[in-house]
């Protein structure tokens, strides 16, 4: 198929066919990562800016490696979120960066919709590397790629997403992508971490991990942030982990070939135990490897 999009802002707006095309393209890029010389000249002469308003070593490094393996020039900018009162606005920042003749901006921002806003301010391609509680499309894609790789197909797959659904951009990108490719999605969390109306996105809601763990093919476990407890959404990490933590004991009730995933970084002993992290069915490191390939595919498709 012909790729027509200039930006990658979320998986919501993509067609199933487009998502599959990214996954197929990723297959070929993954092979490059296994070579001795992990570099192709595809994007030589292109300049890509990593504009990160939130610290994230993992995602930034993954994008940087992806760009370098495609021979693009990269620059990383750590910026501060600010309103006009405090200083430079996102619009000013974007315009300044664009004046340097760049081809793409990869943006991570704490405010939902910031990449959309950016895409209206600049001529360059905008890639969303995570915006607030909205979407994290490349994480969604790499999760889905990993599921497809391990399970053969997404269609009919039962996936439980466990954790802080209300604040999770990873959850939203997973939901859109998985639903479009025909998976069944269940979100599992305490009621205070389930956002209103999420059923209308086509998912089932369950408050009990024990109820679903035996029925699903994939557990995608989200990182829980301690600030949420202070916000009154749950009483303690201890109780959270007792109810929603994946332990070896809980895993015994799961299907034998269950896939355990986590976007990282893991709070060991909270979301899952060290034993589960080391279980062969847990594929957290493979997700990281696939992340580079997915980002290569996305950069290639948007900038070719």
């Amino acid at each position: 198929m012909d790729w027509k999009r200039k930006h990658l802002l979320g998986l919501e707006e993509l067609e199933a066919q487009e998502i599959e095309h990214i996954l197929d393209t990723t297959d070929s890029f993954r092979e490059i990562s296994t070579r001795a010389i992990k570099k192709v000249p595809t994007l030589r002469g292109r300049t890509i800016v990593n504009l990160f308003f939130e610290p994230s070593t993992r995602t930034r490094t993954s994008f940087e490696l992806a760009a370098k393996r495609l021979s693009a020039d990269t620059v990383s900018i750590s910026a501060q979120t600010s309103s006009v009162v405090k200083g430079e606005t996102l619009k000013d920042t974007a315009r300044n960066i664009e004046a340097m003749q760049i081809d793409a901006i990869i943006v991570r921002h704490s405010m939902s919709g910031a990449p959309h806003f950016l895409s209206r301010c600049v001529e360059a391609s905008v890639i969303n590397a995570g915006d607030g509680c909205h979407e994290h499309p490349t994480q969604g894609l790499l999760d889905i790629f990993t599921m497809r790789e391990k399970k053969g197909s997404i269609k009919g797959l039962k996936v439980a997403i466990v954790g802080d659904i209300v604040h999770s951009r990873v959850a939203r990108s997973n939901i859109w992508g998985l639903k479009k490719l025909g998976a069944e999605v269940i979100v599992v969390a305490p009621p205070t971490l389930i956002p209103m109306g999420i059923e209308e996105m086509g998912v089932k809601v369950c408050f009990s991990l024990d109820e679903v763990i035996g029925k699903v093919d994939v557990l995608n476990i989200l990182r829980i942030q301690l600030e949420r407890q202070k916000g009154g959404l749950f009483p303690s990490l201890r109780e959270y982990s007792r109810l929603y933590g994946v332990t070896a004991d809980r895993l015994k009730k799961a299907k034998k070939d269950i896939l355990v995933m986590h976007p990282g970084p893991v709070n060991l002993g909270v979301e899952l135990t060290a034993e589960v992290a080391n279980d062969p069915r847990t594929v957290i490191l493979e997700q990281v490897t696939n992340g580079v390939a997915i980002r290569m595919a996305v950069l290639y498709l948007l900038l070719q």
């Binding site: 939203r172 956002p195 996105m201």
Partner: peptide, 15 residues
């Protein structure tokens, strides 16, 4: 407004 739109957009809602 808090509802499916705020959930999709990832913006904090006001019930």
């Amino acid at each position: 407004d808090e509802g499916v739109m705020s959930t999709i957009l990832g913006l904090p809602g006001i019930p």
